[in-house]
Design a protein around this nucleic acid. Structure first.
Lengths: 130, 130
DNA sequence: ATAAGGGTTCCAGTCACTGGAAGGTCAAGG
DNA sequence: CCTTGACCTTCCAGTGACTGGAACCCTTAT
């Protein structure tokens, strides 16, 4: 398969697939003309990567997940631990964003939003109270 | 004030303050020895920036917020619109992360997490069902 | 004289791509 | 045979918001 074909099959841009080769996530063969030649296995790995990335795993996590995927003797505990760590990071990020949103919502609610200059949002940013 | 003093006063690392000068958010004077010399106004701007960044505003948003802050004839509506847009981006991000977390939680719950290789997480990533 | 603890600049790296330039390859149509 | 267009190739640079480090200067105290 050419890069265009695996791109269509995996939903990943060709640029991204080349990048994944650069960082060693995949190692497609090369044809006589220098074109990359993707096997079915490569195509499956790319689908795997696309899904893992869409779940927010870092590329380093993807590397570990791929090697677990290919390791027939793996322990599912290792996969689970990795996924749990990722969930924890996502949860922390969500909490951080919710804290921001709560503060912003409160400020937005206080702001008249008219043509006058008085603005509780700017006053907060300037450190009026804290 | 020296950079170390405004860093302590604002809570921002000196490196970050130099970076903010690089991108034109602040323009401190220079002393005879070449050292930056921060005015009270600069110090106030840095506090403002630290707070705005902690609320997740981008540096470009910060630039706009600073110019509104300094514009005595501003309309609070402009500030509010900017803040609302930011809240919308945060909300979208939270939803994206919640979607990921829900999918991951479901997978983690299904995984035995023992020393056997069978793993619903990897099966999902490989595209078992979808 | 020197050492410590500021300050300065500039360069490189982070993460995961993305855009663009310059050029090679291939199949189809005139 | 030539061209056109759609592919493919490599390499370089940029994104955002810093952060680390090297190499060097300034000030004060010992």
């Amino acid at each position: 398969m050419t890069i265009g074909e695996v791109a269509a099959a995996s939903g990943l841009p060709a640029k991204t697939i080349r990048y994944y080769e650069d960082i060693g996530l995949i190692r497609p063969d090369r044809g006589a003309n220098g074109y990359r030649d993707f096997s079915e296995t490569d195509a499956r790995k790319l689908v795997f990567l696309a899904r893992a990335r869409s779940l927010g795993f870092s590329t380093e996590d993807c590397r570990r997940l791929l090697s677990l995927y290919e390791d027939r003797g793996r322990a599912s505990a290792d996969v689970k631990r990795l996924a749990r760590g990722h969930v924890a990071r996502i949860t922390a990020k969500i909490e951080e964003l919710e804290t921001m949103r709560a503060a912003l919502d409160a400020l937005v609610a206080q702001c008249h939003g008219d043509e006058r200059p008085a603005c509780p949002i700017l006053e907060d940013l300037a450190g009026a109270d804290r």
